[in-house]
Design a protein around this nucleic acid. Sequence first.
RNA 1: GCACCCGUAGCUCAAUUGGAUAGAGCGUUUGACUACGAAUCAAAAGGCUAGGAGUUCGAUUCUCUUCGGGUGCACCA
Length: 599
Amino acid sequence: MPRPPVQRLIEVMSVPFNFATAIEAGLNDAAQALGLDTAPFAPEVHTADPRHGDFQANGVLPYAKRTKQNPRALAEKVIAALPSTITTNFDVTIAGPGFLNFTLQIPALERWLTTYDTEELLRTGATSAQPEAGKTFVVDYSSPNTAKQMHVGHLRSIVIGEAICRLLDFSGAKVIRDNHIGDWGTGFGKLIWAYKRQLNSNALATDPLEEFERLYKVGNSAADADESVLENAREELVKLQAGDEENLSIWRRINEVSLAAFQKLYDQFGVTFDHTLGESFYNDKVPQVYQELTDIGLAAESQGALVVFHPDHPRFNEQPFIIRKSDGAANYASTDLATLLYRTEQFKADASIYVIDSRQGDHCQQLFLTAAKWFEKTNRRLPRLEHTSFGTVLGENGKPLKTRSGENIKLRDLLAEATERAATLVGQKSTNLSPQEQASVAAVVGVGSVQYADLCQNRSSDYVFSWDKMISLEGNTAAYQLYAVARIHSIFRTLETSPTEPTAFAAADGLETTTEIALARKLAKFPEGLRGAVSQLRPHALGLYLYELAGEFSAFYNNDKVAVPEANIRARRLRLCARTLLILETGLHLMGLRTLQRM
RNA sequence: GCACCCGUAGCUCAAUUGGAUAGAGCGUUUGACUACGAAUCAAAAGGCUAGGAGUUCGAUUCUCUUCGGGUGCACCA
C-alpha cells in the first residue's frame, strides 16, 4: 500500500536526493565549525572512481596549501567536525596527500532506493537540488525557414533543444519552447514571383512543400538570369510587407503548409512548441530597436546601413553588427534584438538559450554584447544569454553529410531510413512479435537511435553519422539501453508482478553481492548525471550515465538471478530492477526518447 | 590577415571543468546459453593525451608557441 503523503515527505527530506551536494553542505558546516575562512574554502566534491569510494572532496588540499597547514592534519580535523548527516551515511577516509573519500554505507543506499521510487519523487528531488528551479528559461530551437523542407542540418537543434527543455523542466524550471521560424526572408519575393507564373496545382495538392521548394528554385534562377525578374521579385516583397492581400494570402498558405510539414517531423521526435513566433511577428517591433539603439549612441549609420560597433572588442570594433540593411529592410540581427526584448518583457525570461550551430558564434556574441549594453543603458535586467552551440553532422568521408548527388538529406528521408533499417533488424531479432508490434518497435528504435547518436557525445564537436554504428545496436547506443529496459519489463511479466507494486519488495533484505551493490551505487548517482547535463546544458553527460547504468544492470543480471525461490533475495533484486527501470526510463524520456515494454 | 572550435588506443568517442594508476565501445584474441530475453556478459592486448615551453602539491584540462584539420569575418538567415 502507498504510504501517506506526510510520511513520504518526511522520508524524502531525511534522505538527500543528491549525495554530492549533501557532502558539500556538510563540509561547509564543518569548515564553519572549525573557524576556517569559508570564503576561500571550496569543498570540491566529485563522484569518484569506484576504487576510491563514491564521492571525493579535494578542497582541503588547496586550502591547507594557502594557509600553510599540513593537509592531512587539517583533513583529520575536518572529518572530526563533519555533521551527523554525513557520518550516518558515509564512511569517510583520508587518502593520498589529503583527499577525502566518502563511501556510501549500504543502509544509506537502501534508504535512497526505498525513498525515490517514482518519477514524481525524482522530480521533486531534482527541483530541491538544482539551482535552475523556479527560473524561466526561453529555449530557442529548431527554427527552420518556411517554404523549405527540413534537412540533416536541422536535426541537431531539434534533438538537443528538446532534451535541454526536458532537462530544465525536470529541474523545476519554467520552460518556454519558442520556435523562431524564418518566415520573412528576402527569398519570398522570388518565390511569390514564381508562384504567380509557374504554379503546378497538381503538385501543390500532393506535396505542397516540394512544390514551394521547386518554385523557389525557379524564381531564384530566373532572378539570377534576368535583372527585370529580380526587380519584379523585390516589388512582390515590398507589396507583401506593405500588406498586399494577394501576396499575403500566398504567404499565409506557404506558412500553413510548412508548419504542418514541420509538425509531422516534430511528432516523431515528441516535440511540441509553446510558441511559434517567427520573424514576421517582430516586423512591427524592430523600429523601437533602431530608435533606442540610436538614441543611446550604440548604433550609427555606416555605408548606408545601421550598424553597431564595439570599440572595446578586438574584433567587433571593426566587424559590424548590421541591424538594418542599407535598403532599409530588417535582417536577423534586428529581429533577434526585438525578440530578446520581447522575451524579457513578455515572458519575463531569466535566461534565453539559443540552440544554434556553432558557425553563428560571431552573430550570437555580437547579439549578446549589444544587448548587454542596450539593456544596461535602458535600465533593463539582462537575462542569462547562452549560445548552446553544436557542431556539424558529417558523412563517413569527414565532410558535411549529403546524398550521393550532393543534395542535403531531408529529415523526412533520414527518419524513414532509420525506421526501415530498424525494421529489418527487428524482423530478424523479434520474430515473436506481431507485425504491428514490430512496426512500432522499429519506429521507436529507429528514431531513438538517431536522437541518441546525436545526444550521446559532446554537442560542441562535429560527429560522424554512421548507420552501422547507430543501428548495429552495440556500445553506447539507444538500442542497448532500450534492450535493458525491455528485459526488466520482461522479468516483471515472467514473475507476474509490477515494478510499481510495493508488495513485491516487502520481503527485501540487505544488499549482498558485489553486483547488487555496484548497481545500487550507480543508481544513487543519477542526480549527479542529471546535474552534469543541466548545469552545462550538455545532454551527453546524462547519456553517459545511463549507458553506465545499463551496463551495471547487465552485469547484475548475468550474475544474480532474480527469479530465485528465496523471497528475501528475490524481493531485493526485484527492487533493484524496478529502480533501474525507473531511472532508465526517466532518463531516456528526458533525452526525448520513447521506451518499450518488449522489443 | 584576424578570430573561434578541434587534435586523446588502429577506428568512433569519454574523462564530473585543475585531481589519485587517462576510461568506454567498435575491431582483434579468449571464454560463458538443457539460464528471469545472448540485441547480453566476463577477460586480454592496445597511450610520451599532435610537438615544445611555462604556471603548481598535481595539467588531457590553464598560459605561450609550432604543426595539422574545421568554421566564421558588410547587408541570406
